[in-house]
Design a protein around this nucleic acid. Structure first.
Length: 472
RNA sequence: GGCGCUGUAGCCAAGUGGCUUAAGGCGAAGGUCUGCAAAACCUUUAUUCGUCGGUUCGAAUCCGACCGGCGCCUCCA
């Protein structure tokens, strides 16, 4: 039984999709005014792991991630760089897809753009105005929070407190300081669309309500995003969607904890701001994913080079086994022993971990336990059948590769399509074995060291000498 | 001020009442194997879970107080 911590109820709840096996899931995507940062990457990776696990469980997931391509920050950047706002958005959308791919994040089924949904957005605002939840003041349309009695139900706030503690700039046009923009009147030089209230553009929250409704329906299963989106963004989405449709908006709200640097929030002003692409130059996608998966998605994560370095080291153990497994499968040994091994126990442990509110740190522990047990079986048995290794591979493919994305069998170092270099390496290995037989260890060590410098690591064992390439 | 998260070994981090006299990763120490390495395996590395009290047959887990870290309430993943 899969349970999920629901921000709305502040409890772990059994996950019951509206229309199984279908699951409709919406994750707040980037505002495309810059490269996304490593904190965004955490949200994207953790939502990817959640999505992959739902698919592992047999759900048919429709995964939608919006691209907010019209917004104040984009306009600001376009003014600064004297470029068209659309060109800025296009540039960073392209970069977004490049980075997502490098991070091994599975593509969403849909990436709706705000600018491609103006009719839906305007339609939704119109509905809110008609129903009396919104008002127009000279071309600016605001949502009237006092009209939505459940305002604050997601963030646990109530209107009076919000008003008294409000640090919101005074806007004379608003009836209530907490009212938020649905439609902003265009200023000189800003991109605009035509609407019943004049030329303008949508406010920040409305595009998510409009696009999720269009692509996932008026009520859908899961909505996820960063912690800081609980208020006001998600609160406002609820207010908009539920007021317009008269139905519950989302059943399960999932929120990701913040990524901190030295226990401080990452921010450009503190100078501790890293983009995902900068980090990808230093560490592998798998290491980033493992580092993230080893912390529960909802808690804070303190990010550092050491964290990634330690993940990178841990990954070596996993990769070494994966290489070994491929090597053994290649041998196609059909007559060897099949060691007794509790594959089902590990499978159950993995599933129990992930079923418990996507406890990926526990799931990682299961995988590392599995790796150790397999290595032990290999050490304790001789002449092992390839069948065993096929089972090992299947488990790792389903879990470490398929759900967590911390392993990539296609990166295997065993096969090389460069047969000449492979032959050359094997030739050197033969020469080294000859040297060893003559106890010419100076020469044999030299061969090993020199190959090492070229990124080829030799490993002697009872069965002979194997080599692997250091991975990038 | 309001709301919420958090304090577990040298570092990162699960566990939230008995299955745990506390997982897993990194690091450290010793060992097996090896000509030496590497890899792999084995052993050791928190009698203890911020502090002090309380509830309980039993608590890292529940309650209270106190001390510390962080986030949101304004754009933000």
């Amino acid at each position: 039984m899969l349970s999920i911590y629901n921000t709305l109820t502040r409890k772990k709840e059994e996950f019951k999709p509206i229309n199984p096996p279908y699951v409709n899931m919406y994750v707040c995507g980037p505002t495309v005014y810059d490269y996304f940062h490593i904190g965004n990457a955490r949200s994207f990776i953790m939502s990817d792991i959640i999505r992959r696990y739902l698919e592992y469980k047999g759900f048919d997931v429709k995964f939608v991630m919006n691209l907010t391509d019209v917004d104040d920050k984009i306009i600001k950047k376009s003014n600064e760089e004297k470029k068209d706002a659309g060109a800025i958005a296009d540039l960073y959308i392209k970069a977004f897809f490049e980075d997502i791919e490098k991070l091994k994040i599975k593509k969403a089924d849909l990436y709706p753009k705000a600018t491609a949904h103006m009719q839906e957005i305007i339609g939704l605002i119109k509905k809110l105005v008609d129903k009396g939840f919104a008002y127009n003041v000279d071309g600016n349309v605001f949502y009237d929070v006092s009209k939505f009695e459940k305002y604050g139900k997601l963030s646990g706030k109530n209107l009076d407190e919000l008003i008294s503690g409000a640090r919101i700039e005074i806007n004379e046009e608003k009836k209530n300081p907490l009212d938020f923009s649905l439609w902003k009147k265009a200023k000189e030089g800003e991109p605009y669309w035509e609407s019943p209230w004049g030329n303008g553009r949508p406010g920040w929250h409305i595009e998510c309500s409009a696009m999720s409704c269009k692509h996932l329906g008026e009520t859908f299963d899961i909505h996820a995003g960063g912690n800081d989106l609980i208020f006001p963004h998600h609160e406002n989405e609820i207010a908009q969607s539920e007021a317009a449709n008269g139905k519950k908006f989302v059943n399960y709200w999932i929120h990701f904890g913040f990524l901190n640097i030295n226990n401080e929030k990452m921010s450009k002003s503190l100078g501790n701001f890293f983009t995902a692409r900068e980090i990808l130059k230093l560490f592998s996608a798998e290491a980033i994913r493992l580092a993230f998966a080893q912390t529960h998605y909802a808690g804070p994560l303190n990010f550092s080079d050491e964290l990634l370095a330690s993940a990178e080291k841990g990954l070596e153990k996993l990769n070494n086994l994966a290489d070994k497994v491929d090597e053994e499968i290649k041998k196609n040994n059909t007559t060897g022993n099949v060691p007794a091994f509790e594959f089902n126990k590990f499978k159950n442990d993995f599933e129990n971990a992930m079923d418990d509110d996507f406890n990926s740190p526990q799931a990682c522990a299961v995988i590392f336990d599995f790796v150790r047990e397999v290595n032990r079986a290999i050490a304790e048995n001789e002449n092992i059948s390839s069948k065993f290794f096929l089972d090992v591979k299947e488990f790792l493919q389903n879990t470490a590769e398929g759900v967590l994305g911390i392993l990539d069998f296609s990166k295997s170092t065993v096969s090389s399509n460069d047969s000449i270099s492979e032959d050359l390496i094997n030739l050197l290995i033969k020469l080294r074995i000859d040297a060893k037989k003559e106890k010419n260890y100076a020469l044999s060590d030299k061969i090993r060291d020199e190959l090492n410098k070229l990124g080829i690591i030799l490993q002697d064992s009872k069965e002979g000498t194997a080599y692997k390439r250091t991975k990038k």
